[in-house]
């Protein structure tokens, strides 16, 4: 039961926010994170066309041996990705709350440019309060 990291990917596949929680995570360069986010965006686009029964919203969970990746797609195409331990069961609920914080602290902030990296003290503060 642990949260390892949070990514926010814009509708073009660019990583606009990335944050790690807790220690022990391998340190990647920002370039590597950008590549990862772009790749995930591509995978998501492909998986949304794989469904045998009509339209699909794409991949929602990717599970590894030691971690789980939960992906939430918003109606506007922004993706929230939460990296957690495999046993974490509340990732969906947390992602909904992150979305709420994003709507408040990012979209209502007059100094934020849509689709650009998120640099907002208010967002950082509220994410810290939410995920520690």
């Amino acid at each position: 039961m642990a949260i390892f990291g949070l990514w926010v990917i814009n509708k073009a596949g660019g990583l606009v926010y990335q944050r790690n929680f807790g220690d022990g995570l391998p340190t990647l360069t920002s370039n590597e994170y950008l590549v990862l986010a772009g790749t995930l965006h591509g995978i998501h686009a492909i998986t949304s066309r794989l469904s045998p029964t009509g339209s699909s919203s794409g991949v929602q969970v990717i599970e590894g041996e030691s971690f789980k990746m939960t992906i939430m797609l918003t109606p506007t195409g922004t993706k929230f990705v939460l990296l957690t331990s495999v046993t974490e069961t509340t990732a969906d609920v947390i992602l909904q709350k992150v979305y709420e914080v994003y709507a408040d602290a990012v979209m209502k902030n007059p100094f934020h440019t849509p689709e650009m990296p998120i640099r907002s003290d208010g967002f950082d503060r509220r994410i810290t309060a939410l995920l520690g």
């Binding site: 408040d104 602290a105 209502k108 902030n109 007059p110 100094f111 934020h112 640099r119 907002s120 003290d121 208010g122 967002f123």
Partner: peptide, 14 residues
């Protein structure tokens, strides 16, 4: 409440 002023404009108060 939802306004985060960037650092280079820190004196600004909306």
């Amino acid at each position: 409440r939802n306004v985060s002023v960037p650092r280079d404009m820190s004196q600004l108060s909306c």
